[in-house]
């Protein structure tokens, strides 16, 4: 080395001093190269060891620990049963509600609402996103409206829906439908808009028809965004369901919760909340499964 970059050596020496305090004692002559030992054998997020052994087990232990603490606090009298029932009571209540059919009836009513909300809202959001993403006219007509409506709290629209559709199923499904549309629209539209313009050139060069362009390029490119939207939509659907069912309903998990509240049955409330959590997890892993199957082409999968 003929030219000595002293700044870099000082930086290197400072770094190595952090790693090895012995080096800090050495004089900085500027001539001797300073060696550092670089980390090796470390696995990052992407490389190898993705499913680190024991990781799933540790997560389970974490959850189990929470339940043990909760049970212990209840046994010791720190948590009163009328405030929050202990896990064991929740389990027996759950079993009881299952055996007398009350839970399944409520679940069935709730699931139907979520299903119809998604069934109408998801295609609607996707179609709007396609219309806005594929043509300037569509974009001008649709996007402004959606972006404006997006900031109206859906829950605030409940009163309007009841005014228009009464207190029946339709109002609840309509609210879920509307709430589900937005995450689907926003994510799908963003995915279409961010499509690499070089693929458009490729389509020109290959002489693809409009339909082939949509089918071979636009739809597959929009799929990852759509699936992100779908996961968010699932979460929104469960959220709005709880809300809708607690306002005015004569069936469903939310209705069960309101009734339990009236009779101070915290154990029933907790059973219903656990149901929401499990259903949310199940729908989320369903979308994750769809992602794994349909997005195998993505780098890093």
């Amino acid at each position: 080395m003929t030219v000595v970059d002293t700044d870099r050596i000082v930086v290197a020496a400072t770094r190595s001093a952090e790693l090895n305090p012995d080096i800090a004692a050495l004089p900085l002559t500027g001539a001797a190269p300073v060696f550092v030992k670089l980390p090796s054998g470390v696995t990052d997020e992407l490389g190898g060891h993705r499913a680190r052994p024991g990781r799933g087990r540790q997560r389970l232990i974490g959850v189990a620990l929470l339940f043990v603490l909760w049970e212990a606090a209840s046994l010791l009298g720190w948590i009163k049963p009328q405030d929050l029932a202990p896990p064991t009571a929740v389990v027996t209540t759950g079993a009881h509600l299952l055996s007398n059919g009350a839970l399944l009836t409520a679940l069935w009513a709730s699931l139907q609402r979520v299903f119809w909300g998604l069934f109408v809202g998801v295609p609607l959001g996707a179609l709007l996103a396609l219309a806005a993403g594929l043509s300037r006219t569509g974009e001008n007509l649709i996007d402004g409206n959606v972006q404006m409506l997006r900031f109206v709290p859906i829950i605030g629209l409940e009163s309007l829906f009841v005014l228009w559709l009464g207190v029946g199923e339709t109002a609840k499904i309509a609210m879920i439908t509307l709430g589900v549309m937005f995450p689907i629209y926003v994510n799908t539209y963003a995915a279409i808009r961010s499509l690499d313009p070089r693929f458009g050139e490729l389509a020109d060069v290959l002489g693809l028809s409009q339909w082939a362009r949509i089918r071979r390029i636009v739809l597959p490119a929009a799929l990852p965004g759509f699936l992100v939207g779908l996961r968010m939509a699932m979460a929104v659907a469960w959220l709005l369901l709880v809300f809708a069912e607690q306002i005015n309903a004569s069936s469903g998990l939310g209705y069960l919760i309101v009734q339990a509240q009236t009779f101070f049955q915290s154990n029933v409330i907790v059973v219903c909340l656990v149901c929401y959590a499990v259903l949310g997890l199940l729908t989320d892993s369903l979308v994750r499964f769809i992602e794994r199957v349909t997005l195998r082409w993505q780098p890093g999968r």
Binding site: R198, L202, A203, V205, L206, A212, I217, W297, Q298, P299
Partner: peptide, 23 residues
């Protein structure tokens, strides 16, 4: 007429054969 660009410009979501017979 066909073009080969500087980048391969393959559709990542189509397999190799799908890319070759695109269009």
């Amino acid at each position: 007429r066909s073009v080969v660009f500087q980048d391969p410009r393959l559709l990542p979501w189509a397999d190799v054969l799908g890319n070759v017979i695109l269009g």
